[in-house]
Every structure is written in C-alpha cells, then in structure tokens.
C-alpha cells in the first residue's frame, strides 16, 4: 500500500517537472514568436541553401571561367566569352529550337489528349471497366523514364521490335524509328506523350472535380448549351489546376534528358539533341565545365522566361475577369 502511494507520488512529481519544463519552453517561445518561427525554418532553409542556392551561385560563377576537367590548367576567368561562344554556336541554337519544338508539341498534345480523356472519365463511375482503364492509363506515368526509354527502344528496334513486326506484317515496311533522323525526333516525342498524357488526365480530373456540383446542376436546369457550360461553369473553376498542370509539364519537359538519352543519346547526328542532352554532353562527355555552366544558366533563364510569360498571361486574364 505504502509503496503504491510512493510510486504515485514519484509519478506525480515527474509529471509536474515535465509540465514545468513544457511550460517554460512554451513561455519562452511565446515571448519570442519570431525566433521560434526561424527555428522551425532552419532545416528547410539549410537544405535550400546547400542544395539550391550554393550550386546555383557556383554555376553562375563557373560560367565566367574557362575550365576543363581534362586539362591540367586550372580555371581561367574569361568574362562573357562562354556566353558569346554559345550564342554564336549553330548546334546549340539547333538544340534550343528542338527543345522548344519538343516542349510545345509534347505539352500541347499531352494537354489536348489529357483534357479529352479527362472529360471522358469525369463523372464516369458507371462506365464499365473505368477502374481498369484508368489504372492502365496511369501506368506510364509511374514507370522510370530510363525504363520506359529502354522499353521503347526495344519496341522501335528495326529487327527485333514488336512495333516493326506489326508494321512489316501490315505494310511490308521496316521503319528505323530511332536510327533515321527524320523519324527519331517524333519517335521520342511520341514516348514522351505516352508517358506524360496521364499526368494531364490526372490534372484535368482534379480540375473538373473542383467544379461545384450545384453550378453544373443549375446549368442543366437552365438548359445552357454545352459550350456555355464549359465557358461559364467548368472553365472558371478548373482552369487554374489545368494551367498548373501545363506549367509543371512545361518545366519538366524543358529538362527532359534521361528518356531521350536512353533511346538515342541525342542522335542520330543531333536529331534528338535537346538542350538538356547537349548540356550533359558538354559537361560529362567533353568536360567543358565553364561552357556547360553558361549553357545551364541560359537554359535556366529561358525556362524562367517561358514560365514568367505564361504566368503573366494567366494573371492578366484573371485580373480582366
């Protein structure tokens, strides 16, 4: 009996002291709210600083130097020479134009297909096989780009590929999808579309899910024509999520490297050499770190410009509404 009481007393004393410490911490942070906020931010800020800010600043600095990893000479300050070299290099301009074409066509087609398929699956709970179809459609998105690249490289193969097997059976032709410069770009673009259309379907479904049911019902009761429903009910609610999807895809598309590198390594010639591949080759094949840093900076600025124009249009339109 006595020991029970003693135990209870000890427990109470412990709880009280824990409570006192907790209270002291609470009071301390209540007095220094700003400090507390900063303490909470420290982990994320450190990560941001170490993984983003320092490498970016390093890259900016490096872009003004001539520095090769395979040369015995150390880094040499050359001013804006790297940038001049890049901007006067036709191959790089070609890479840029290919990248823009890849982004515009890829994201454009993914958006159109994504929206169409999104509408098809919207409110389609009773559609037979819906779950299977959606799982099937979303699979490409979760495959690693390297795996998808390898997979399609096999499909496209002129001698062993199943794609060519069917083409040969139906049309008696053999198409060298990845080896022929006139097909290679569109062949890799097709894989990118296959991979990322599900993402746009997902975004469209999320966007359409944000349209209030009552507004759709009101439009139905009011007998609004379909286009008017789209313009005045569906789009005002869903456009932001769809636009966000396009924005994310644009940024990602700009950086496409692994998928194409696995399939063509940028070839044949430089038919599929997008800017990210050019950058990779410059840095890790030619080891020109200065020039590749300058190219990376230009790519970064282009992507920022691209998305800024896009966001500006979006905000401008919103203000007008």
């Amino acid at each position: 009996m006595y020991s029970k009481k003693k135990n209870e007393q000890e427990r109470n004393t412990k709880t009280n002291s824990i409570n006192k410490i907790a209270l002291r911490i609470k009071n301390h942070f209540q007095k220094n709210e700003m400090k507390f906020a900063w303490y909470l931010l420290i982990p994320v800020l450190s990560f941001f600083l170490i993984l983003n800010v320092i490498p970016t600043l390093w890259m900016i600095g490096l872009s003004f130097y001539k520095y090769s990893l395979i040369s015995a000479a150390g880094p040499k300050f050359v001013g804006i020479k790297n940038f001049i070299d890049i901007l006067s290099n036709n191959v790089i301009w070609n890479s840029f134009s290919k990248t823009f074409l890849f982004v515009l066509m890829g994201v454009g087609i993914q958006t159109i297909l994504g929206i169409l398929l999104g509408f098809l699956f919207w409110n389609s709970d009773r559609l037979p096989g819906r779950r299977f179809a959606l799982t099937f459609l979303f699979t490409p998105m979760i495959i690693a780009p390297v795996a998808a690249g390898t997979y399609f490289k096999l499909i496209y193969d002129p001698t062993l590929g199943i794609g060519n097997y069917f083409i040969k059976s139906f049309f008696g032709l053999v198409v060298n999808f990845l080896g022929d410069a006139s097909y290679a770009f569109f062949s890799v673009l097709l894989v990118d579309i296959w991979m990322w259309t599900p993402f746009m379907i997902l975004m469209t479904l999320a966007a359409l899910g944000s349209v209030p049911e009552a507004e759709l019902e009101a439009a139905e009761v009011d007998n609004l024509p379909w286009l008017k429903r789209l313009r005045y009910v569906i789009l005002p609610h869903s456009k932001f999520i769809i636009m966000l999807g396009i924005l994310l895809r644009t940024i990602e598309s700009f950086k496409t490297m692994d998928l194409i590198y696995t399939m063509t390594s940028g070839g044949p010639g430089n038919a599929t050499e997008l800017i990210a591949i050019k950058l990779f080759r410059e840095a890790f094949a030619s080891f020109n770190m200065g020039e590749s840093a300058a190219l990376a900076l230009i790519t970064l600025l282009s992507a920022i410009a691209f998305t800024s124009i896009y966001l500006f249009i979006l905000q401008y339109k919103e203000k007008k509404v």
Partner: peptide
Amino acid sequence: RKRNVGMVFQYPVVYRG
C-alpha cells in the same frame, strides 16, 4: 432541362466572369 423548372440552390449559383 426539359422539365421547365427553375431552381435556386442553397449555395448562390451564378455564372462566373
């Protein structure tokens, strides 16, 4: 749409923009 009814919902439904 073919019932010729008008309906006012709980949440104010207006056409945006």
